[in-house]
Design a protein around this nucleic acid. Structure first.
Lengths: 231, 231
DNA sequence: ATCGTAAACTGAGCGCTGTCAAGATCAATC
DNA sequence: GATTGATCTTGACAGCGCTCAGTTTACGAT
């Protein structure tokens, strides 16, 4: 599932060997560049990221990154790719941790919660996942496709829709609504008024996830025609 | 309400006068810079915007913009400010156009619709409104505060909550849910999979607004305890 | 009509950036 | 041990944000 294909392509382990010289070949520069980039973005923001500073941080020359990424925006794209992989993984784990993974409503709630938690835990990756203008989408290995991460969420909505009698809105609309509410909460949490000064809504960041997830089942029940859903 | 305070601060009208020379004083350079910036961002994206190109577009020297904006990010902040003002205005108009502006559910639906429509009509401004990292918030004239735009939305939710019997979740949670769903739909529409390849959900962009708004009342009814809301 | 003042704008320039071409270095293979 | 090919360095280019000293203009007071 979109894992790191090769741990150490050339050379030795991740660290520059203990000799006096810093070693001409880095070991795993690609990884080091990604890590340094995430750290720098987290500190100063995406717009302040300079490829040269990333290279400096990794201890290589300004042109070295170009042997691993065709451009700056492709490096950002790789970070976004890591984000998609991480989100998918977090969602799978959330389902696996469920007492009954087949219960539709619980399944959806767990995914929603995982979505928002991921955004809070990995804001840098999450933001890049949804800033297509900053990013050139390099062809990812199969299983890493953004669609795959979202498919889990949409599938969970479909399961609920199957259990619930057909209601006022189509299943597609249900899926859109579910996705929107979870994604919107995440965005407002990271870059909206909830983050900056939280003046508008007296809601602490850590409460956003639980609150949204608590509302989700009600939304699905009601939108599907006010019938009693499973459980 | 955050209107343009002075139409033409110095000099003559907006256009460079019809003489042969391009006129040393531009007339309304600030406005021209904002307009050019929005156009360039719409064409090439925010990250590709250069202050020098904006100046070129406006026919002035590279240093001229600095007499109107302290920095590039302050220019972007001004665009975001225009966005907040525009959103507030669009929301007020949406309410004013209502047959009965006092009907809580219709009021909320109209605001939600206006929110999403605004994002679609002014993607550049909308994005900047929610990219605080790109923007330095210059002190805006009173009435232009972002909070004011959102207050309308939150107020509409509160009105619904007042009519509906107290339910499973607090009014704050209701407000968060409503705002999230509308904002999330807008973000997904602009920068999410709905925009890029719309492979995940078979929903056309122009359908997103109506669908979300159709779900909104159901959400509020259900979350508030499954009781019958007004109307 | 003239002057003085302050705003608007210019042009040169500094340090930084993303990117590229050419050369140096090293690990692994034949 | 020589070859090969990936990895990294060096050096350079154009363009960027931003600063500053100086020029041009418009407006109010005289």
């Amino acid at each position: 599932m979109c894992a790191k294909p090769k741990s150490t392509p050339r050379g030795a382990a991740g660290k520059p060997r203990g000799r006096g010289k810093p070693a001409y070949h880095h070991g795993d520069l690609r990884r080091a560049l990604l890590d340094a980039s995430v750290a720098l973005i987290a500190r100063d923001g995406v717009e302040a990221l300079s490829l040269r500073e990333v290279a400096r941080e990794a201890g290589v020359s300004p042109a070295a990154p170009y042997h691993h990424f065709a451009s700056k925006s492709e490096l950002l794209g790789a970070i976004a790719g890591l984000g998609f992989a991480g989100l998918g993984q977090a969602m799978e784990q959330a389902i696996a941790a469920l007492p009954d993974p087949e219960e539709p409503l619980a399944r959806l709630s767990a995914l929603g919660r995982a979505y928002i938690d991921f955004a809070r835990a990995h804001p840098t990756e999450f933001r890049l996942m949804f800033r297509p203008a900053l990013v050139t989408r390099t062809d990812l290995p199969p299983g890493c496709d953004p669609e795959d991460s979202f498919a889990l969420l949409l599938d969970a909505v479909a399961r609920v829709a199957r259990v619930v009698p057909p209601g006022l809105v189509t299943p597609d609309a249900l899926a859109l609504a579910s996705w929107s509410i979870v994604h919107g909460a995440a965005e407002l949490l990271l870059d909206g008024p909830l983050a900056t000064k939280q003046g508008s809504l007296p809601i602490a960041p850590e409460q956003v996830g639980p609150l949204v997830v608590a509302v989700l089942p009600a939304l699905l029940r009601a939108a599907a025609g006010n019938a009693r859903a499973a459980q």
